[in-house]
Amino acid sequence: MTEGASTPSYPKSSYPTSSRNRVKRRHDRGFYDHATVHRILDASMLCHVSYVIDGQPYCTPTFFWREGTKLYWHGSSASRMLENQSEGQRVCLTVAHLDSLVLARCGFNHSADYRAVMAFGSAYLVTDPEEKERAVVAMVDRFFPDRTAGLRASNKQEIKATSFIAMEIEEASAKVRA
């Protein structure tokens, strides 16, 4: 949702559904509530961010983290992904967990237990110096809790060499087979 847009009319505990994020096959496995979507996102350390540049689709794996309904990811300031997501480009961020393989008496009926999320929104470059410094700490502490407290502070060149992208989750869906 863009700044200044009207308040969404969906329950605050769920993401709105649309033709873009509605689970099409096996509706019973689809979830839109914040609790399920956030739990799956938080259990993952790696995401894939999909976007289009000049008609060419790209999908980039990267580290990410969630703060409320906002997702952050990072990369080199010189990367194609970050360079092209700085001005509100539409993106889709996905995570998936393969929990187990399910065998059957027929190959057609083999399956897998999994949890996956697709989240949609408009990406923007984090330019506020305070938000960027918080992002450096949040990224490290996400993977190594309280690690930054024992490290030297990042210097200006290191902060300059790293960019952060953020995206408010506008729509999301989870699909779970257990």
Rank of each mutant, 00 (worst) to 15 (best):
R66N: 14
R22K: 11
C106Y: 00
C106L: 00
R115A: 11
G107R: 00
T94E: 05
D146K: 07
Q89C: 10
S122V: 08
N155C: 10
R20K: 06
H38W: 01
G150Y: 12
T148K: 06
G55C: 02
R134K: 14
M167F: 14
H34W: 00
F64Y: 14
R80K: 14
S111Q: 03
R115I: 02
E3S: 15
F143Q: 10
S100N: 10
T94N: 07
P57V: 10
L101D: 02
R152I: 04
H38I: 00
V102D: 06
I40Q: 11
G75C: 05
R134Y: 04
G4I: 08
R152Y: 04
F31I: 02
A153H: 11
Y72S: 10
V117H: 09
L41P: 07
A135P: 02
H34A: 08
M139Y: 14
G150C: 11
S9V: 12
M167T: 14
G150P: 04
R66G: 08
H27I: 10
Y32F: 13
S79T: 13
Y72H: 11
A123G: 04
A35L: 05
R147S: 08
Q85H: 09
N21C: 04
A153Y: 03
N84S: 12
V49I: 14
A138P: 13
S6E: 15
P11S: 09
G121S: 07
H97Q: 15
E131Q: 14
P129K: 12
T2V: 01
G55H: 08
V117C: 08
T127Q: 01
A161T: 10
G107Y: 03
D33P: 02
S163H: 09
Y32P: 08
E171R: 06
V49A: 02
L103S: 08
K70C: 14
R26L: 07
N155G: 08
K175C: 02
M45D: 01
S154F: 07
D99F: 01
K24W: 07
H74W: 09
K24T: 15
E67M: 12
T36I: 14
F64E: 12
Q89Y: 02
P129T: 15
F64P: 05
A116R: 00
S19K: 13
L151F: 06
Y114S: 13
M81D: 13
K132Q: 11
A138D: 05
R66W: 03
A138R: 04
F120H: 13
I53S: 03
F164L: 04
A172P: 09
R29H: 04
F120C: 06
D33W: 03
D146E: 08
L98I: 14
F108K: 07
A149N: 01
R22A: 11
